[in-house]
Design a protein around this nucleic acid. Structure first.
Lengths: 161, 161
DNA sequence: CTCATTGCAAATAATTTGCATGTAA
DNA sequence: TTACATGCAAATTATTTGCAATGAG
């Protein structure tokens, strides 16, 4: 399972993006009367420092390298929190695992998925972005996120056959 | 020009489309030495007669109204077969259920999903279709299927709030 | 006859939840 | 002090699988 980011160098979220994400979370927690704990801080920091498409499994491993006593239920609960407040988006690519992305990032790229090797390649196309806004407007939808995934066989797997 | 299919909810696949699907299945089964059984016939017929986005649950209910002794494992196995031979596509809209669509149909429309009421609206836009082909070509992908989903709040739910 | 297929129940796998204990505020 | 949060294990949910019996070719 490989992620091709070569086509979009400098793809790491900017400090500004991260600060915006933290602010959304802070506001949501304040509004709901939620508390800031060591676990939430570690999980959020780890998530924000991770590449896209992290699974709960991967995240838990990385979180435990900082604090081994974090339970997996807490990771699930915190990622659900991040999703609710709009910082993260859930994705299912068909391999049975739920993955998470920074919401801001997922609005800037989409995915090509190889059904042979499960490899994920990112792509970006502004034309599609604007068409999406147009379609949402046509139906009176307030757009929150989107998924655009192309499934097929990648060049490498075609050659290997 | 884009075609709004959501305003044609009574849409059904043409006889030709259905015949093509049956032929793909027949060819696949012949090639793999698979057998035609009562259960498979009922399940396939029911699937082809169903609206898009059927879940296993819904399908099983409809199948059992024809033949009450069909087991749910058989429905799973048959839908997997339909997916393998290219007749059906699996989809996950985030409500925890896997849904299935006729592959031909899913290449002609995409989805707007309301995260408040879980309502699914279909849309179609030819521009996106051709951009997808272009992107796949750019990465050397042999395209098999795609998912394009816009998540947000529908007009009705916005008003209700 | 042979071997694919089926139904059932048990097994998996991912995620959620109940609850006693811990801890921000 | 007062809820919210956590860890753990048990519960849930969707899907898969083992296996003996059945049935297609």
């Amino acid at each position: 399972m490989s992620v091709d980011r070569a086509s979009h160098p400098g793809h790491t979220p900017s400090e500004e993006t991260l600060e915006q994400a933290r602010e959304m979370l802070r506001a949501y927690m304040a509004r709901k009367g939620l508390r800031s704990t060591d676990q939430r801080r570690v999980i959020v920091d780890t998530f924000l420092a991770s590449a896209d498409h992290v699974s709960i499994e991967e995240l838990l491993t990385r979180v435990r390298s900082h604090d081994p006593r974090v339970g997996y239920a807490t990771v699930y609960r915190t990622l659900k929190l991040l999703t609710e407040c709009g910082v993260a988006n859930e994705r299912q690519f068909g391999d049975g695992l739920t993955r998470f992305e920074l919401a801001d990032e997922s609005s800037h790229h989409d995915h090509l998925i190889c059904t042979a090797c499960n490899g994920i390649t990112e792509f970006e196309d502004e034309r599609v972005e604007s068409i999406q806004d147009e379609i949402a407007a046509r139906y009176g939808f307030r757009l929150r996120s989107h998924k655009h995934e192309l499934y097929g066989i990648c060049q490498t797997c075609q050659a290997r056959k």
